[in-house]
């Protein structure tokens, strides 16, 4: 048999071939990257662009992809809603719904609803931490009877679909007289967020060495002190992830809020947005501006904390 080195074909210019291959590889990646950026950004850009157009421009056919005269008038309308003369049946029917820059009467609720969303999300975050951190620490580091069972229990509750909770929740909340309160949202959002919080924190705590826990205990920490003084400072990254997830989940939640809220007292931002979309008299430009307002806070949060979000998702995925 011939020595394998002799089988190399000297007529092929391997160097050229390698160079071409690398170039092709680069081209594919560049194309893919551009395509992906377009896929992710195009719909949002269109929404943002629309929100900067006047009602007259927005209804042009074909559409103006980039506004001729960008205007913040739609946003101004939102922030000053309620200061102007209230929208009544007369003013509404007097204006042309297509070009008139129509502001719905509920527009003045937009800022209060953002405030409601913020309060609900903040309370849910705090309760999640209070409830989730000790539970996760116990599951990860204390060897007690039923440790696996409690983990499975929490995992199972994570699988329950929110729509399956709606009927019983509604009846109970109504009986407690809590319909249309922020409290009803805070309580029910715990069902959607707590299992995930515990799950991520357990993953993280399990990743910290057992010996650290033992060292703390021998150094004189009670279980509670070991958790607070040794584990909490070390788990900052996963705590940030948990806070973000919980906040975004509450901020974005729609179904439960749809059932329990009725007025400005408790309506959250998604509810108000949804009410605009079903109101055919609302002008497109206003609607788009409201949509942009709803998108901006979570997107800023996502961009700032990108690293923590990805690592948190990763931890949550390990045993999903």
């Amino acid at each position: 048999m011939a020595n394998s080195i002799e089988t190399i074909d000297t007529n092929i210019d391997y160097r050229r071939r390698q160079r071409l291959g690398r170039l092709g590889h680069k081209a594919v990646i560049l194309f893919g990257a551009l395509l992906l950026a377009f896929y992710a950004l195009a719909p949002i850009s269109w929404l943002v662009s629309s929100s900067l157009q006047t009602e007259a421009e927005i209804v042009s056919v074909p559409p103006h992809w980039i506004p001729d005269e960008p205007t913040l008038q739609n946003f101004r309308a939102i922030f000053s809603a309620g200061e102007d003369e209230p929208v009544t049946y007369e003013t509404r029917s007097g204006a042309d719904p297509v070009s008139g820059g129509f502001i719905p009467s509920s527009a003045s609720s937009l800022l209060p609803s953002m405030w409601n969303s913020t309060i609900v999300a903040t309370l849910v975050v705090i309760l999640n931490l209070l409830v989730g951190v000790p539970a996760a620490y116990a599951i990860a580091k204390i060897r007690y009877w039923g440790r696996n069972a409690s983990m499975y229990f929490i995992l199972i509750t994570r699988v329950i679909p929110d729509i399956a909770l709606v009927v019983p929740f509604f009846l109970v909340i109504r009986k407690l007289g809590m319909l249309d309160t922020i409290g009803s949202l805070v309580i029910t959002y715990l069902a959607v967020t707590v299992p995930f919080t515990v799950f991520i924190l357990v993953q993280f705590f399990e990743g910290l060495p057992d010996e650290l826990d033992k060292a703390a205990r021998v150094d004189g920490c009670s279980r509670f002190q070991a958790m607070v003084r040794v584990f909490l400072p070390l788990s900052l990254p996963s705590l940030v992830a948990v806070v973000l997830f919980t906040f975004l989940t509450s901020w974005n939640e729609f179904l439960l809020a749809l059932m329990f809220t009725q007025t400005e007292a408790s309506q959250t931002l998604p509810i108000l947005l949804a009410s605009f979309t079903s109101d055919f008299t609302v002008s497109f430009s206003f609607l788009n501006a409201a949509g942009v307002l709803a998108i901006v806070p979570p997107v800023i949060v996502a961009i700032i904390f990108e690293r923590y979000i990805v690592s948190g998702l990763t931890a949550g995925a390990v045993k999903g």
Binding site: P209, E211, L212, K214, A215, A216, R217, V218, D219, G220, C221, S222, R223, Q225, V230, P233, L234
Partner: peptide, 20 residues
């Protein structure tokens, strides 16, 4: 008696120093 109520000190194989 839990560890923090016993008067013991311990050195671990991995040292288990508090990183923070």
């Amino acid at each position: 008696v839990p560890p923090h109520k016993r008067d013991v000190a311990m050195v671990f194989q991995s040292y288990a120093l508090y990183p923070h």
